[in-house]
């Protein structure tokens, strides 16, 4: 079955449980933004921004092979305390 490869950059608090802030995730074809989140050990996953090409995605947004995704907490910055 064909896979969807997406490059993910994760900022600030959501990245705390990850070894790297930049990862590549392989998902099933027709995967959604929620599917991506479900693969990541992110705390408070309902309250992060998932962004592609400057546009916020909804949880049901379809991902495309080669997408570059940013996951950002909804704060003025990305303060990693």
């Amino acid at each position: 079955m064909k896979e969807t490869h997406v490059r993910v950059k994760i900022f600030a608090a959501p990245s705390l449980a990850l070894e790297s802030r930049e990862i590549t995730v392989n998902l099933a074809q027709d995967a959604t933004a929620q599917d991506l989140l479900d693969t990541l050990p992110i705390k408070d996953r309902d309250y992060v921004y998932i962004v592609r090409e400057g546009i916020r995605l909804t949880s049901s947004s379809k991902l495309h092979d080669g997408d570059e995704i940013m996951i950002i907490p909804p704060i003025a910055g990305g303060y990693r305390s």
């Binding site: 962004v51 400057g54 546009i55 950002i72 003025a76 910055g77």
Partner: peptide, 10 residues
């Protein structure tokens, strides 16, 4: 803007 912090707009 937010400097080195990630930011976007649609």
């Amino acid at each position: 803007g937010f400097g080195a912090l990630p930011d976007f707009a649609a």
